[in-house]
Structure formats: structure tokens, C-alpha cells
Nucleic acid binder design. Sequence first.
DNA 1: TGGTCGACTCTCCGTCTTTG
DNA 2: CAAAGACGGAGAGTCGACCA
Length: 240
Amino acid sequence: MVVAKKSEYEASRQKRLEENKKRMEELNLNKLAQSLHTPKPSPVCIKFKYIYIYIYVMKKVKPKVPKQPLDLFSVRRSSRVADMPPRSYKEVPIEPMGKPRSFSYKRRDLLNRVYAADEDRQYAIQRADDLRSGLDQDSPSFIKPMLQSHVTGGFWLGLPVQFCKTHLPSHDVTVNLIDEEGGESPTKYLAQKTGLSGGWRGFAIDHELVDGDALVFQLIEPTTFKVYIIRVNEPGDSDD
DNA sequence: TGGTCGACTCTCCGTCTTTG
DNA sequence: CAAAGACGGAGAGTCGACCA
């Protein structure tokens, strides 16, 4: 019974492999695969290789070569496939930059975005400016008003180019963002793009940043920013 | 130069199946 | 039945095109 089940599964799997192989040959993908120079492809990349080639053929897009081969950590392995080349099944926990993956993610509905009023936005910037003027002038700083693209969707935070050129490293580094409570959030600074990417999303979500908030970034160490958050929806010092 | 948005890339995780 | 691998879906980061 078990044998019958197994052979049935294996047969269908083999059949599927054969079908795919035929399709590959029809599209001349095997030759293309050989012609592509992918230096030391990682096991995972092998999995994607034909997908890249497919995209290449169908969409005339040059497939990207993976930047770094994966490290191979301890591999789960049964005797059934013990002789096969290693595959990547990383099980070593890596400190996540943002929320843990168990955090249930849902695609954001960009249609439900809430935009701040211009007056509120200006008021937040003005308060941020006041705060900034009271900071240690020896530490370079700048104000960044939050827009939708900073706090939703792609979560990309572009920094002032001149500030980056003057005060930040010319290569990609991990930049620590320290909030007013002292909480640290490591984020990835991309020098070429003069902006923050990986990790910024976590910071924005953790601090519930919204369109219209104004942030004061104070560079207290070469790769550490103290971040002051001026909420757009919070009343300032003045009465309301 | 900076903002927006969608496509693409890569990794993780859950589920299914096989094996011992 | 537990362990291990295959597979596919989904999430998150990155990139590029376009526009102001």
C-alpha cells in the first residue's frame, strides 16, 4: 500500500519532471542555461535559475546574478537523498531587523491611506525645526517630514543627498536609529541610493509613523542617528 | 533631487510525502 | 510516528521607471 502510494507519487513527480524538461527543450532553455554565466550559483539560485531564464526569454529581461552565494548551514538530510548536492535549509536564527516573521503581515490597502492636511504638516515641521534649533549644534542634523511613501508601501526613506555626502559613509552600512526612549533600530543605509531601506520599515511600524509626522535626525555617532518624532496629530505647546 | 508605485528578487515557513 | 526533503505561497527588501 505504502509502496503503491510511493510509486504513484514518484511516478507523477517523474512525469512532471519529464514534462518540464520537454518544455524547457522546446524553449531552448537548456542551451540558454548553459550560456548564462552564473558564478557559483547557490542551491536556492539553482531553483530559480530556470525561472530567471524563463523571464529572460518571455520578457527579454536580463536575469540578475545573485549578489552573494548563500552560506550553507546544517542541512537536514535523509538517506534517500544523502548523495545529492546540498541544498540550503537555513535553520540558524538570524536576528531580524524589524518585527519577527510571526508578525502577521497583510498587504496594505493603499486606497485607505490617510493624508495629513497641509497646515498640520507645516505645523509639525515648524515644531521639529524648533526642536532641532535646541539640539547640540556640533551634531549634524536634518528634518524629514514623513510622506506616504516613507511609511507605507515600499517603506523607502530617502535622505538629503548633501547630508549623506558630507556626514555618512560612502558605502552601505547598518545605521542605528535611536528613538527618544533609547530604543535602537538597526536599519540598512544604501549609500548609492542615499536612503534607508531594510529595517526602516520596522522602525516606521514600531513607532506608528504616519503621513505628516516630522522627524528630526541627529547624527550622534558616525552611523547612529538620534531620532525625534514630532507627531502630526499631537497638539504642540500652543493652545488649541 | 526627491516622491510614488509596481515589479522583481530572495528568503522563510507551512504543508505534504517519503523513509526508517 | 518522527525526521527529513520537496514544493509552493507569501512576506520583505530592492530596484527602476516615471513624474514633478
